[in-house]
Amino acid sequence: MSINADEFEMLAREGVTTPTVEPSDVVTQPLPMRRGSVDAAWRALKAAPLTAWFGLFVIAFYAALAIFAPLIAPHAQSAVVGNQYEPWSAEFPFGTDQLGRDMLSRLIYGARNTIGIAVMTTLLSFCIGGVLGLLASIIGGWTDQLLGRAVDILMAIPQLIFALMLLSIVGSSIPNLILIIAVLDSTRVFRLTRAVAMNVVVLDFVEAARLQGEKLGWIMAREILPNILPPLVAEFGLRFCFVFLTISALSFLGLGIQPPTADWGSMVRENATLIAYGDVTPLLPAGCIALLTVGVNFVVDWFLHKTSGLKE
């Protein structure tokens, strides 16, 4: 299939990719001498929009929650400490769940479990998709064709559906979940890496390196990777959101992370009955998911805007 949803999504985020000013008419200013990268990062940060600051703050907050969960949470994640569905109180700020476990503690542990699994999955997916994408772009020829067709076929089946099918066969466990989602998601990483690497591979400096007898590994690591890092970093953010949402959806459907592990997706499902009584508690874990993905998306959006050279 020639449609590439990923490219479209990137396009949707970056807006116009054509430069707004004709380069020939912009006077190249004599550039100042090299400045420290920390300094540059700080300056970029100071100029960042409010949404980006919000996103960064959210990410930092979640990271702290995930790392220090045992110190912050008042109770253990699977400890039954009260009656089922107790209302919000001083003792249980967000009440208790269907088994009488403290909602707040489970929310805090949920950060650790859900985010941890999503991060691991995304990392694995980048290792698979990124390396294969780079290889395909540099070697080209049959390797590229073969990998490309394999990815086309994996992508011809909707990801969530494919994941559901595979989980029904191998059974739902955390390693299975990570492996399945990572493999399925690596197809998109592959396509993006290959596409952006292709743009670099055709440049003359790569040819110059080949003509000077540089080896494949060196070209990959030194000539190509540094030049495709910005889009890959942005893609990491986007893929993390996507993986995070997929895992949450699977957990919500009861096929992802299994009890008694505290996990936001499952927590929504377990407490969903409360909605019928007008209680917002089940929305809390869903809100936790939403807040993080919104935050990451805001940061990615700013980063893409920054690195795509789009100024208006």
Binding site: L203, D204, F205, E207, A208, L211, G213, P226, N227
Partner: peptide, 23 residues
């Protein structure tokens, strides 16, 4: 082989794309 590669070199039209901007 390497010694042969050394003896033939190339210079390109666009110096912008002939140098890796990150090195």
């Amino acid at each position: 082989d390497k010694s042969l590669l050394r003896r033939i070199q190339m210079i390109y039209q666009m110096p912008d794309t002939a140098l890796n901007p990150r090195r």
